[in-house]
């Protein structure tokens, strides 16, 4: 289990990396944390001709507040996000998901950009960042462009990034603070990739007792993050902070069923589709339950 040979380039600037990517190392791959790429190379399932190591590029690792958004550099490691006070305060949904990525040793190396570019359907960040309506900043030979999370993930391990583009930054809007939020996943063992996951964000009106909108995004069981819009609408129509226990139970059940219905077609073709559908429905319900709980407590 040893990687095949490749040429190694240590990029010192983003521009140098971009030049390499469209020049000398055109058939190469970017190397960030290596936590997904190197295992594939060890198994020789990936055998790039060249690696462009991004780790020595200064200024790609940061978490900062920029007015009504948070900007995170692509090379920021999961571990830095895990211990960021800013994220814990401003983006609790993200903060809840990060400790569920792999194990400490993986989070010490794995990066935000690598995880998003890799677009593993079972990864946490694509699901959560889609829920947060994040914008991906891609740098290419002809400059930068911004891609919405919903358009960024295009399928199984596939993104809208072009071959010669580098994911540079992720921007997460802060214009609406959620009243309730939750991320839940189910994995066979702690730290494993999730079989299914659900992100829920609840937004309330000014007085704070009606749910004016919700974002519910499913991951893991589907090939890319999926917004379940019928569920979002149901929540928006039915939920307020004063919803009685009995009618809440009713809504929760419907959320479960509706989630199953909405994602069934995306799950087709996977092993044990019935189980996965059921599991996903249950997780959506649990995520909503816990988001409601937080809303009530706040």
């Amino acid at each position: 289990m040893k990687p095949a040979s490749f040429h190694y380039y240590r990029a010192r600037s983003l521009q140098e990396a971009l030049d390499l990517l469209s020049g000398a190392a055109a058939n190469g791959k970017l190397l960030a944390g290596g936590q997904s790429l190197i295992p594939l190379m060890n198994l020789r399932l990936a055998r790039p001709e060249a690696l462009i190591d991004l780790n020595s590029i200064p200024g790609l690792s940061y978490i900062r507040s920029e007015g009504n958004k948070i900007a995170i550099g692509a090379l920021t490691r999961h571990r830095e996000m895990e211990f960021s006070e800013l994220l814990a305060k401003e983006l609790p949904l993200l903060a809840e998901a990060i400790p569920q990525i792999g194990h400490p040793a993986i989070r010490n190396r794995g990066t935000l950009g690598g995880s998003l570019a890799h677009a593993d359907p079972a990864a946490e960040l694509p699901c959560v960042l889609t829920a947060l309506d994040a914008r991906m900043v891609a740098a290419g030979p002809d400059g930068e462009r911004v891609i919405r999370a919903e358009d960024f993930f295009t399928g199984f391990y596939a993104t809208a990034l072009a071959d010669h583009e580098i994911l540079k930054e992720v921007r997460i809007p802060l214009d609406r603070h959620p009243a309730g939020w939750s991320f839940v996943e189910f994995a066979r063992r702690h730290g494993d990739f999730a079989l299914a996951e659900a992100s829920v964000l609840l937004f309330a009106d000014g007085a704070g007792d009606r749910c004016t909108s919700a974002r519910v995004v499913i991951g893991g069981s589907v090939e890319k993050p999926v917004r379940v819009q019928d569920v979002e609408k149901l929540i928006q129509d039915e939920i307020s902070i004063r919803t009685q226990a009995s009618s809440l139970a009713h809504v929760l059940r419907r959320v479960e069923q509706l989630t199953e219905t909405e994602i069934r077609s995306s799950i087709a073709g996977r092993e044990n589709p019935d189980y996965l559908c059921h599991l996903t429905g249950v997780l959506a319900r649990r995520a909503l339950e816990s988001a409601m709980e937080r809303w009530r407590k706040a």
Partner: peptide, 11 residues
Amino acid sequence: ASRYLAEDALE
């Protein structure tokens, strides 16, 4: 001479 080369050979 190394496991790396041995795996190259298998290919």
